[in-house]
């Protein structure tokens, strides 16, 4: 379990992360969303003990992370641009990581060679494409058997086949060892099928942090054409309507609550039209956040 308590990180005069509190439970996959410059990377680097927090703290199982090898050997941070030593192959890098991380699993490293067959063991890493370098860094990271894997925008730049494979690799580790994954992206679509928890950052602050399934079940998009305009008044008293849009006699509503509850209430008025429409996660966010007073649309795409 990673606990972030009232974390603030200041660069020069700019507050890159401000008063963020967050708990990531063991074995969960946490997606951190936000536009460029929202503070995601800074938050991740502070979590990984790369940066020192100006205020607040980062704890791994109750132990501080910064300058604490005991905590840090259980976590691996993968930057958006992987770093390898000059003129090294993955095999040489593996020698380095093996010496650094006590939980390094040589067998696992060898096994994964199949999954990463496109990366020759002896080829110089800096000659590989960006996407392949990312895969290489993930390969090395997973071989270290970390309890916590922190990934800064890792999926961008991978082809769909590889993307699926990477996801599977992560899922295996999560299923097998309850590895915790923290993953950032500036695009919700990139990670919505991976995470169980998501948080959105904006201007250094964590605006919202939710379990994805709760979020999906929490609000619904419904089209209704009432027999009597007064019925609308009646249901708005009974249901929590986040958003309303009318096109002719048909209204589109975003309503909080379970489908069952909404159906029950609406059906009592026997409307002409009653449809539950599919709603993307983005839309859910947009309305959830709009409810909290944020215009979130530009933050997610």
């Amino acid at each position: 379990m990673i606990e972030i308590k009232q974390l603030t990180k200041i660069f020069e005069d700019e507050r890159a992360v401000e008063d963020v509190s967050l708990t990531v439970h063991k074995g969960s996959i946490f997606g951190l969303l936000g536009s460029n410059g929202a503070g995601k990377t800074t938050l991740l680097k502070t979590m990984a003990g790369v940066y020192r927090a100006d205020k607040g703290e980062v704890l791994l199982e109750g132990q501080p992370v910064y300058e604490n090898p005991q905590s840090k050997q259980r976590m691996i941070f993968l930057a958006d641009q992987p770093y390898f030593f000059a003129q090294t192959s993955i095999q040489q890098m593996a020698v380095f990581y093996r010496a650094i991380y006590p939980h390094w699993d040589e067998q696992r490293f060898q096994q994964m060679a199949q999954a990463f067959a496109s990366i020759p063991l002896k080829r110089k890493l800096h000659r590989l494409s960006k996407g392949m370098q990312r895969q290489a860094s993930l390969w090395l990271a997973l071989s270290c058997k970390p309890d916590i894997l922190i990934l800064d925008e890792p999926i961008d730049g991978l082809d769909p086949v590889m993307r699926r494979q990477v996801k599977n690799l992560l899922f295996q580790e999560v299923a097998d060892r309850e590895m915790t994954v923290v993953i950032s992206s500036h695009n919700l679509r990139e990670i919505e099928d991976m995470c169980d928890h998501v948080g959105i950052m904006h201007q250094g602050r964590l605006l919202i942090e939710k379990e994805l399934d709760d979020l999906k079940a929490a609000s619904h998009k419904i089209q209704i054409a009432f027999r009597d305009p007064r019925h609308e008044q009646a249901i708005s008293g009974l249901l929590d309507i986040l958003h309303k849009e009318e096109r002719g006699s048909v209204g589109t509503y975003i309503i909080k609550g379970t489908v069952e509850r909404i159906t029950e209430v609406v059906q009592t008025y026997q409307p002409y039209v009653f449809d539950v429409l599919p709603m993307t996660l983005e839309e859910i966010f947009i309305y959830e956040m709009g409810d909290a007073g944020y215009d979130v649309q530009p933050l997610l795409l």
Binding site: G27, N168, V174, A175, M194, C195
Partner: peptide, 19 residues
């Protein structure tokens, strides 16, 4: 099927399957 197997087959977050 175990959580792990199902997660691999479906490419779904194991926590979701667990749930």
């Amino acid at each position: 099927p175990s959580v792990r197997t199902l997660s691999g087959q479906l490419t779904v977050n194991p926590n979701t399957i667990q749930k």
